[in-house]
Design a protein around this nucleic acid. Structure first.
Length: 670
DNA sequence: GCAAGGTC
């Protein structure tokens, strides 16, 4: 297991050993390890190491945790659903205790801490990691108040970087830990109060909902449902519109060329008729632009979790939760790096060539890897994200496909191909643009010749192919087009939300983390808020553009594209779909899901609980706590005040929610 | 019986 490093805490014990050792990590790997009681995977590694003053030569015990140690719940008096009014959960006392699955880990820390002189925290350097660090600290200090507690600042486990971190300990960042603590309290109070209230008041209304456990509310699951419902209404309320266009064809050198109108299409038939007639009157068209220029298709960015999940549901025939499960398995078996990362740039110190060389034994991509080592290697592009905790997902060892299950093989292959693509060169091509003036209208055509496929050879998930060759046109050449006609078409509705689109929306709006997005999606299925069905054989080429548009619309607080006009609806009209043999799931809300979202929207709170803004606001508040511009207490107090108000108004006007249930779940009008 | 976050 190579990751205990990022989830570890080290305890220095006295008396110190006189024998120094090169790095904590090397030493830990080769020195003796002892199983900690209770858990097979929990190990204590003991080794000597010399720190700078004041610690000096020490005997170190390196051990690990696994995520948060503590759980929070309401005081036992409030745990029964009949014990109180759900609204009282905004003020009910909360107790923090060691999670029952974590007692062995906590006990181990206590045992090791009792006789130690210092505690050195090596958890991930992100907010949650900082909070976990304080949990470890509190457990240790409770048995040994004299412990000197420090924290390592590190973002990878490169040898030099680790030594640097070991020699320059810093204090734990209380602000980051406080930000997380605020989130924990708010999510618990708001989630539990709304969940109980909804369940108790709405579930009894509908017979077939009795089999449901709860009608839950959560700051992440609700916006996730909101995205699905919003798209559903865009599809349902879509009104096709007729548009007109002008198509010009010309045959030259035995090649048929289609010219596209610069105006694309218009929704005013008379206007198009007039413009079209002017073209016909002009008779001849003239070449006004003839441009050849080098072009390239950029290789992909280093792989993040979000991207892995999107690609997985698009090309690997698995839903995001499945992709993550498989990636975790590949990680614990040592084939790929840690699969939960937001980082899309490799640290400078990383020996990427060494990782490439591990792939040379492969039948499928070994030759490509060898070619990279022989000189074709090109440094990966750097994206804009760095979580300072983990590198991009990459293969760490070669494994033969026969040693993997079918699903593991697909995910592993994707990770390797993506990595090799990152280490190769952009694809090179030559693009040709011909523009003609026909009457007063401009038309154009494009040609592409792929000159060097480069990364495309190892990365079949991207398509970039030469177009039909264009005939030779010359600047100022005049010709009478073979054909010019006016065409009519109709805008077509967008499809239901697909999983990559949903993940893209969640990512863009800060709903969930890389590690939890798939869980939120699974949760709204489990709660019967949405259903999925497969949309086979069709991958919309405009997925990404569409996703960001939707996020932007959401950002303005409108009801998305509901009954929307021509502008937006034509973005998907008549757009060719890229060929793909993938089967993708599309999400359709159930009547229950629709009733909830429509009910809250009808209550008229700004912003509605079905929208992502409240979660965004929480993220902003957490950042403010980290920056020191506000405090945990301030944020919790203010947010609770806001939600208490929403809660009170919801219970007073519960009829609005019930009406939505009657309308959508029971199918009654009025 | 509730949340979201961490991860074995």
């Amino acid at each position: 297991m190579q990751t205990w490093s990022t989830k570890s805490s080290a305890l220095q014990k006295s008396p110190p050993s006189p024998k120094p050792s090169p790095t904590i990590w090397e030493a830990a790997m080769y020195q003796q390890s002892r199983n900690a009681p209770g858990l097979p995977w929990l190990k204590n590694y003991e080794f000597p190491y010399t720190f700078p003053a004041p610690w000096g030569s020490c005997t170190v015990c390196m051990t690990s945790v696994a995520g948060h140690l503590n759980s929070q719940d309401f005081d036992p008096r409030f745990r029964s659903w009949q014990s109180c009014n759900p609204g009282e959960l905004f003020d009910a006392p909360i107790v923090t205790y060691v999670d029952k699955d974590k007692t062995a880990i906590a006990k181990n820390i206590e045992q090791q801490a009792r006789y130690a002189t210092a505690l050195f925290i090596w958890t991930d350097c992100d907010r949650e990691g900082e909070h976990i660090g304080t949990e470890i600290r509190d457990i240790a200090l409770a048995v040994n108040a004299r412990l000197d507690v420090r924290r390592a600042r590190f973002s990878n486990i490169e040898r030099a970087h680790v030594i640097q971190a070991a020699r320059n300990p810093i204090p734990l960042d209380e602000r980051q830990a406080n930000a997380v603590s605020a989130r924990i309290e708010l999510d618990l109070r708001i989630g539990a109060s709304f969940t109980r209230m909804q369940t108790l008041s709405l579930k009894p209304m509908v017979e077939h909902l009795q089999e449901l456990k709860v009608i839950s509310y959560g700051s992440c699951q609700f916006p996730t449902l909101g995205f699905v419902v919003e798209r559903y209404f865009r599809v349902k309320n879509f009104v096709p519109e007729t548009f007109w266009s002008i198509k010009v064809m010309h045959r030259q050198d035995d090649i048929d060329v289609k010219f596209t109108w610069r105006r694309n299409h218009l929704f005013d038939r008379m206007a198009v008729v007039i413009l079209y007639e002017r073209c016909l009157v002009a008779k001849a068209a003239k070449v006004v632009k003839m441009q050849k220029k080098p072009t390239r298709k950029w290789k992909p960015l280093p792989l993040t979790t979000v991207e892995l999940q999107k690609m997985g549901s698009r090309y690997l025939r698995m839903d995001s939760q499945r992709v993550m499960k498989i990636a975790e398995d590949l990680y614990t078996k040592g084939w790929i790096s840690y699969p939960r990362t937001e980082t899309d740039q490799f640290d400078k110190g990383m020996d990427l060539r060494a990782l490439v060389s591990k792939q040379t034994p492969s039948q499928a991509w070994g030759a490509f890897a060898s070619n990279l080592l022989a000189g074709a290697f090109n440094a990966p592009r750097a994206g804009r994200n760095n979580d300072k905790a983990h590198p991009p997902i990459h293969p760490v060892n070669f494994v033969a496909p026969t040693a993997l299950t079918d699903e593991e093989r697909r995910v592993y292959e994707f990770v390797v191909r993506r990595f090799l693509a990152c280490c190769s060169e952009d694809a090179q091509g030559e693009s040709t643009t011909v523009e003609i003036l026909y009457g007063a209208e401009t038309f154009h055509t494009h040609g592409l010749i792929v000159l060097a496929r480069n990364y495309l050879d190892v990365y079949p998930y991207d398509k970039w192919e030469s177009s039909q060759q264009l005939p030779a046109f010359h600047m100022s050449e005049v010709f009478v087009p073979t054909e010019a006609k006016m065409t009519e078409g109709q805008t077509s509705p967008p499809g239901y939300l697909t999983e990559p689109e949903l993940i893209g929306l969640m990512d863009a709006n800060g709903i969930g983390t890389d590690a939890t997005m798939a869980e939120h999606i699974a949760k709204i299925k489990e709660r019967s808020y949405v259903e999925t069905r497969s949309r086979s054989g069709r991958t919309n080429a405009t997925d990404d553009a569409d996703t960001s548009n939707a996020a932007a619309r959401g950002g303005r607080g409108g009801r998305g594209g509901r009954g929307r006009g021509r502008g937006a609806s034509t973005t998907t009209a008549g757009r060719p779909s890229t060929a793909s043999n993938s089967t993708m799931q599309e999400f359709i809300p159930t009547t229950l899901g629709v009733a909830l979202v429509e009910g809250y929207d009808a209550l008229g709170f700004e912003p509605s609980l079905s929208k992502p803004f409240l979660r965004k606001e929480m993220e902003r508040a957490m950042k403010a706590i980290c920056a020191g511009s506000t405090t945990r207490r301030e944020v919790v107090q203010q947010s609770l005040e806001q939600y208490r108000e929403v809660f009170a108004r919801t219970t007073v006007r519960i009829e609005v929610l019930k009406a939505s249930f009657r309308k959508y779940v029971l199918g009654q009008n009025g």
